[in-house]
Amino acid sequence: MTGQTNPRSAATLMLARDGADGIELFMVVRHHEIEFASGALVFPGGAVNQSDADPRWRHLAEGVEGLTDQMLGLMAAAAREAFEECGVLFARESRGAALVDGERAETLGNAYREKIEVGTLGFADMIEREGLVAAFDRLVHFGHWITPAHMPKRFDTYFFLAEAPMNHVLQHDGHEAVDSVWITPRQARIDADANRRTVLFPTLLNLEKVDRHRTVTAALAATQNDRIVTVRPEVLTSADGRILRIPLEAGYGSAEFLVVGEPGQNARIVRLSATDTARGSAG
């Protein structure tokens, strides 16, 4: 396609905990002045930067055995973005130990979050300086989505799932994210359908995929055994609205979805049967 934009590598971390009504996810509301997904309810995350490819991660982190350099950099980006955006720190004082407690995470956040966010210090620099071990073993690869080719701003995004440390206080940074909430996938869907929140298509489908499990432990166990299939949505048109087609083997419960609403805004999403989809035409 002429003028096609190459997607930028990105990583996002789905922080989960067990709640009274099932699994809850920590999500943030993006600032309304941000160019991409402004005002949307999203998982903490962002673009991969040069420091995420730091070769020191091979000895500064656990859970790196057998990882490609690309996947290691993506996991570093997911952990870094979660630390920058909401203060959660996946790190240990020593190998095999428990995660640092909430007080230690908050102290390190006060000292380093802003420096890491503006790029004057790398995430690996902080880990090494403080004598910590990054706990990348707590992050499980959950999904892989690439923005459709016709979109002007595109991302090649890897989703990771992790259980949130119980005693860490998670809160939005007030810059890229202006609000935050612990929310069940069901409530996020209800809010999106009622136009109370903007929830993008990939976000909503990943929420629904998590919601198949009663506990975070069950979700993580199932995910570790999954084969991750890359999703590159194809956009079709029909008389009823836009149809997004994704690989059925990606595990999102359907291959075609009717999306009623404008891109980047609240939209009602409906799974389509094979009969319904046959009415669509390439757009």
Rank of each mutant, 00 (worst) to 15 (best):
G3A: 11
R17Q: 11
G22V: 01
V28H: 08
E33T: 13
A37V: 04
V42E: 08
G46Q: 05
A47W: 01
D52A: 03
A53F: 05
D54T: 03
D54M: 02
R56T: 09
R58G: 03
H59R: 12
A61M: 05
E62R: 08
G63D: 04
E65M: 08
G66L: 01
A76V: 00
A79Y: 06
A79L: 07
E81T: 01
L89I: 07
L89P: 08
F90D: 01
F90S: 07
A91L: 06
A97V: 02
D101L: 06
R104C: 02
E106I: 03
E114R: 13
I116R: 13
G122P: 01
F123Q: 02
E128F: 07
E130L: 00
A135Y: 02
A135G: 08
F136C: 06
D137N: 07
H144K: 12
H144N: 10
I146N: 05
T147K: 10
P148D: 14
A149S: 12
P152F: 11
Y158F: 10
E163N: 10
A164Y: 04
A164R: 14
M166C: 05
L170T: 09
Q171K: 15
H175C: 15
E176Q: 10
R186A: 10
D191A: 09
D193N: 01
N195K: 09
T198D: 05
N206F: 14
E208K: 12
K209S: 04
A219R: 09
A219C: 14
A222V: 14
Q224D: 04
R232A: 15
V235R: 13
S238Y: 03
G241M: 08
R242H: 10
I243P: 00
L244R: 04
G251L: 15
G251K: 15
G253D: 14
G264P: 10
N266P: 06
I269G: 12
A274R: 12
A274H: 08
A278T: 14
